[in-house]
Design a protein around this nucleic acid. Structure first.
Lengths: 343, 343
DNA sequence: CTGAAAGCGCTTACAG
DNA sequence: CTGAAAGCGCTTACAG
């Protein structure tokens, strides 16, 4: 099996304590002993056993990122930022994907009590109050990304403001009936974005027509899907008085909406939210979230807190930027044109 | 701190061994003792400490996925498949992002010798022969995704065949000069795809014009970027005799290529590779890789091997499907049209 | 500068 | 059915 500290100690004629010291940079070991130990360790291909170290030091050098759904753009960008900050930190990253069946509370409770990570990153995971209180008491180092809670560090984007700016832009551009494609009314971002949308209309002296706030029927991923946007736009276009511009709560929905418009041969200005990679390519106007930076900063905060649990709690709220683009790709869709030629 | 097995043992008036047995489902404990223990454990909010368990059992219940670059579509999709298979397995997932600075060999060596995972998933990471031999000897359970090595389980897609089919399709559609946008000549997929491309031309009785096999100048991510495709297409269009159709080694490059064509106001049939989420939306013809299934199956194989190290080594090679689409989104690009209105 | 020993929280033969 | 004890591989006061 793998070489252990005992093997090295035996060969080097020292105690295991000394070997351990060599690998923990405690200066209290003579150069020649250190040399002998490292040489032998190298020859034996020795690497400290992470688990044993973790148990003895009560430090696992592990960070767990908790995510609701995988394979979504926001998460991937954030993760890239996390990874880059992680690189020289000595920590490893664990991804915990929240399971649909079990309750979030159970899952987090279990996760944390198992004690395998030193810190947690909650990505777009609305923290239930009950769990928050428990974690608070346990003093678990954690940072919230894309969520807010007074008791924990957080990094987020101001959804209300983002929606406000997007809507204001559409109103100020001279559109009469500005609609909105929302996602699941149970999701925090949706709630905020609807609020920002309404506030912008109010501030512009417009009446709020609830019928123009639409969502699709497909509700997986809380409705943040192309399909949902597609469905929502179709419903909007079926209204007796359709909107003449539309704010979409996410880029992915905006893409579906574009498709629906293309099929009907209509066009209206739309603004998305997120600025995913393809928004730029598609020429989609949108509210840009600095996802990479959010991930990077979140890990930064987490490492600081692990290092010093007494650090003041801090909340960073990024202001999303409105990016105006010409919709450069004009959809010319022939529905069901896909043909699979060969299997 | 967290309750331990000792706390429970004391309260229940039993030995720690008994407590341990209760949590390990060994039937050899009386119902009433079991009841008492579980009740107390629940009251104390006890959860076994993962590290300690791992050390004692010599099982960490951890899988590490090794990925070269994060935030790429292929990986995202594969990961989703992995997660879904992971769900009820009792294992956790660790993501190891290969660092650019250090050598791959060092990194893998270190990773494996630390012994924190029970199995490894190598995603699109070409395994150096030297490391392969070491891992083989150590008997580390592992599965290769999007790579091949005779000594390890693998799940991949036939790149040669995919490129062949794509190219053949373009030739058979009546295009005279079929070009190719390649990625880094050092990357395995590129090598295979160039091979398939050439073979298809040969089988069609065409001459191979090396000048029509182009790549961009930007080589991060081995050239699998929108930018690289953009650059490559520009170079192709600058040729005295540009191609009249083009096979691209990845969808992401195809997207860049589309953009370059749009800027020049030219159009030609292109076929990508991967079938990323947006290929469908863009109406891009491409070679479809079953990424989700690949991830799912790879974890399946890994779990089986962890369960029984003597399992026969198996290689699954998926045949990519040619998906023909009408390029539904017609790019009408005005370069540098982006305007940031508000910060 | 170094060693002996206790401890991290759990598992698992071995006895009974 | 249950307990005492050794062990998983490492760290870290405590002595010297």
């Amino acid at each position: 099996m793998q070489a252990t500290i005992y093997d090295i100690a035996r060969e080097a004629g020292v105690s295991i304590a000394t070997v351990s010291r060599v690998f923990n940079n405690s200066s209290t070991v003579s150069p020649k002993t250190r040399d002998r130990v490292t040489t032998i360790a190298h020859r034996l291909g020795y690497h400290p056993h992470a688990l044993a170290q973790g148990l003895a030091k009560k430090r696992t050098q592990l960070i767990t990122a908790i995510v609701p759904v995988l394979s979504n753009h926001f998460f991937m960008e954030v993760l890239a930022g996390i990874q880059d900050r992680l690189a020289d930190s000595g920590f490893d990253l664990n991804i915990y994907n929240v399971r649909m069946g079990d309750s979030l509370e159970n899952q987090i409770d279990h996760l944390v009590k198992r004690g395998s990570a030193e810190g947690y990153l909650f990505i777009s995971t609305h923290l239930p109050e009950k769990i928050g209180a428990i974690l608070r008491r346990m003093g678990v180092p954690m940072v919230l990304i894309d969520d807010y809670h007074p008791d924990f560090d957080s990094v987020s984007v101001d959804s209300v403001e983002g929606a406000y700016l997007a809507t204001k832009y559409l109103v100020d551009s001279g559109n009469r009936r500005v609609g909105m494609i929302a996602a699941s009314p149970r999701s925090k971002p949706t709630i905020d974005r609807v609020r920002g949308f309404k506030r912008a209309l109010e501030d512009s002296g417009r009446l709020i027509d609830e019928a123009l706030i639409m969502t699709g029927d497909t509700m997986d991923r809380d409705g943040f899907t192309e399909r949902n946007g597609y469905e929502a736009m179709r419903k909007l276009l079926d209204l007796p008085m359709p909107p003449d511009a539309c704010f979409c709560s996410s880029d992915i929905q905006a893409i579906g909406a574009l498709k629906a418009m293309a099929e009907r041969g209509v066009h209206m200005p739309i603004v998305g939210f997120d600025d995913i990679q393809f928004a730029r390519f598609l020429g989609l106007s949108t509210m840009c979230q600095p996802m990479y930076q959010m991930g990077f900063l979140a890990l930064e905060k987490l490492l600081r807190r692990i290092g010093d649990p007494a650090t003041e709690i801090s909340h960073t709220v990024f202001s999303p930027q409105l990016v105006v683009r010409n919709t450069a790709f004009v959809p010319v869709v022939e529905p069901d044109a896909d043909v699979i030629v060969r299997t």
